[in-house]
């Protein structure tokens, strides 16, 4: 009659003889797959955002009193010191906001 197998010894033996799998190919396969999925998710995100923008624009166009707004746009532009100061202020705020967006790593 054969003696019962000692599982602790058996697994110890397996642990000691455990092969090491070279990782170069595997690592590059994982990296390629990550890139592929990242691109895919970005494309998906762009498509969702684009679709939402188109739908939003269509709805806005249908309901927004565009002509009334257009009529309010001045046909001539008067440049005076106040206008210059206002344009400079708006430009500064826009630049500051753009810089903040560019520096924000989470975006």
């Amino acid at each position: 009659m054969s003696k019962p197998i000692n599982l602790d010894d058996l697994f110890k033996q397996a642990r000691q003889k455990e092969p090491y799998y070279g990782g170069k190919d595997f690592v590059s396969r994982v990296a390629v797959d990550i890139d592929r999925r990242e691109k895919l998710s970005k494309t998906k995100e762009t498509m969702i955002t684009g679709s939402a923008a188109i739908i939003g624009a269509a709805m806005t166009y249908a309901y927004f009193p565009l002509e009334v707004i257009m009529q309010q746009i001045p046909t001539s532009l008067l440049i005076n010191p106040m206008t210059v100061a206002m344009v400079a202020g708006i430009t500064s705020i826009s630049c500051g906001f753009a810089y903040w967006l560019a520096e924000d790593k989470s975006l």
């Binding site: 455990e18 799998y21 990782g23 595997f26 994982v30 990296a31 990550i34 790593k105």
Partner: peptide, 22 residues
């Protein structure tokens, strides 16, 4: 986690892949 650094992740993969594959 903070920089989405793929090189760092590759090091982690390299380090743990053999055990996991076995």
């Amino acid at each position: 986690q903070t920089l989405k650094c793929q090189d760092s992740f590759s090091v982690l993969v390299e380090r743990h892949q053999s055990d996991l594959r076995y």
